[in-house]
């Protein structure tokens, strides 16, 4: 009986830990609120999951932008990055002031280059996170 009780306690502890782990790690290509290294993911997780759904062997630059207040003004950002053959996909999140850029995995992402392209369009890139898929 004692053994059964101990087994039940151990099993329930293991079950309780698993959901917590899933909140902090990437799992089968779906990222949640925090990255594996503990850093906060600065983008809507649902939007991010939708963005990466058809992407493989890619790295995603999540760029935080100031002054991106209108759709019409942000069009230039999409046009500029789409001309880059290393860019697979781009998404603009006006509500959070973020741009998601999917690059080929082999491409070296340079923040200063991204900053310059955003500035030409009239906004300011403040910081960037890179996530490898």
């Amino acid at each position: 009986m004692k053994k059964i009780l101990l087994l039940l306690v151990f099993t329930s502890m293991t079950w309780a830990e698993n959901p917590h782990e899933h909140m902090h790690h990437s799992h089968e290509g779906h990222l949640h609120e925090e990255l594996v290294d503990g850093k906060k993911l600065e983008v809507d997780p649902e939007r991010f999951d939708k963005f990466i759904v058809d992407l493989k062997d890619s790295q995603i630059a999540i760029v935080n932008i100031k002054g991106m207040v209108c759709d019409f003004c942000a069009r230039g950002i999409e046009k500029t990055f789409k001309k880059d053959t290393n860019v697979k996909k781009i998404d603009v999140d006006l509500s959070k002031g973020k741009v998601l850029i999917a690059y080929n995995i082999a491409h070296k992402i340079v923040f200063d280059d991204i900053k310059e392209r955003i500035l030409i369009n009239g906004q300011n890139a403040i910081d960037m996170q890179i996530i490898n898929l």
Binding site: K66, G67, V69, C70, C73, G97, G122, Q123, N124
Partner: peptide
């Protein structure tokens, strides 16, 4: 002059 902030331009 241009001033960009998180929520305005």
């Amino acid at each position: 002059d241009r001033k960009n902030t998180e929520h305005s331009q």
